[in-house]
C-alpha cells in the first residue's frame, strides 16, 4: 500500500535527551530511517534546541555530511533576541532549506514578540518554518502571526484534540501546512484531504523520540488515493523545500 516514490520524513531529531534515558543518537536515527524505508529525513540536533543554536546548527550540518539521507534543518532561539537574526541569515545563505522553532521545549509563549520578529525574518528570507501547535489556541495564534507571510509555516504536534482548529486556520491561511506525527484520529487524513485538499500534509515521525510505525501506518492505511498518499509521504515536503532535498 505504500508509495513507490521516495519517503521523506520531515520531523526527526538527533543528539542527547536529558530528561530521560533514550538513545536518540544520529546512528539510532539512521537505523530507524533505514528500517522504515525512508529516503530522506529532515533532522535537527538537540544541541541547537537545548544548549546553543549556533553550535547545534554546525553539528547538524556536519552530521548531514556523514549520514546519507539526512537533510539538515536549522533552529534559533528567539529568547536570544537580536543575535538570532544574524544566525538566520547565515544559515539561510548556507542553504538550510527549513528552520524549526521549539517554544514548547524552550519555554517561551507563542504570544511573544521576538517570535513574531523571527517569523517575519524567515518570511523575508523566503524560508519555510516548522513550529509546534499542540494546545488549543496555538494554531489560531500562529495563524494571526503569519497572516501576511508568503512562505510555508508547518504546524507540528497537532493531534485529534485540536485538529478542528488546525483545519479552520488552514482554510483561511493557504501557507499553513500540517506535519503528521500526531494526526492520530482514525480518519484524520481523510478529513483533512476532504476539507483543505491533499497538498498541505507532510509526513513526519518525530523519530527516534517516538515510534516510527505509529505515524507511518497511520498514513499507509488512510483512505486516500495512492497519489495523495505518495504526496503526503514525500511529494508535499519536497515541494515546500523547493526541491532542495534533491
Amino acid at each position: 500500500m505504500s508509495s513507490q516514490r521516495p519517503i521523506i520524513d520531515a520531523n526527526t531529531i538527533c543528539g542527547f535527551w536529558a530528561t530521560r534515558q533514550m538513545d536518540i543518537s544520529p546512528e539510532a536515527l539512521a537505523r530507524v530511517m533505514q528500517q522504515g524505508g525512508v529516503a530522506r529525513y529532515l533532522a535537527v540536533s538537540t544541541t541547537g534546541i537545548f544548549h546553543d543554536y549556533r553550535a547545534g546548527n554546525d553539528e547538524t550540518l556536519n552530521l548531514a555530511q556523514q549520514f546519507q539521507g539526512m537533510v539538515p534543518v536549522a533552529t534559533v532561539d528567539p529568547r536570544q533576541y537580536v543575535d538570532c537574526f544574524s544566525e538566520l541569515e547565515r544559515r539561510s545563505e548556507q542553504g538550510f532549506s527549513l528552520f524549526r522553532l521549539f517554544p514548547d521545549l524552550q519555554g517561551y509563549p507563542l504570544n511573544f514578540s521576538p517570535l513574531q520578529d523571527v517569523l517575519a525574518k524567515l518570511n523575508e528570507l523566503g524560508k519555510p518554518v516548522m513550529i509546534p501547535a499542540p494546545q488549543m489556541g496555538d494554531a489560531t495564534m500562529l495563524a494571526e502571526k503569519v497572516a501576511f507571510n508568503q512562505t510555508p509555516v508547518i504546524l507540528t504536534s497537532v493531534s485529534c484534540d485540536n485538529l478542528g482548529e488546525a483545519l479552520s486556520v488552514m482554510k483561511s491561511c493557504a501557507q499553513i501546512y500540517l506535519e503528521s506525527h500526531l494526526l492520530n484520529s482514525p480518519d484524520a487524513f481523510e478529513v483533512i484531504v476532504s476539507e483543505v485538499g491533499p497538498d498541505r500534509i507532510v509526513f513526519g515521525s518525530n523519530a527516534p523520540l517516538r515510534y516510527f510505525a505509529s505515524s507511518y501506518l497511520s498514513v499507509t492505511t488512510a483512505g486516500v488515493s495512492d497519489n495523495d498518499r505518495a504526496n503526503i509521504l514525500g511529494g508535499n515536503i519536497r515541494r515546500v523545500l523547493a526541491a532542495k532535498t534533491e
Binding site: 485529534c160 492520530n184 484520529s185 482514525p186 480518519d187 484524520a188 515510534y211 516510527f212 510505525a213 505509529s214 505515524s215 507511518y216 501506518l217 497511520s218 499507509t220 492505511t221
Partner: peptide
Amino acid sequence: DLTLINPAFVAGMVRDA
C-alpha cells in the same frame, strides 16, 4: 482508544517495540 485514536497509530507502537 478508537474512535478518538487510529488503531494504526497504537498498533505501530507495538509493531515497532
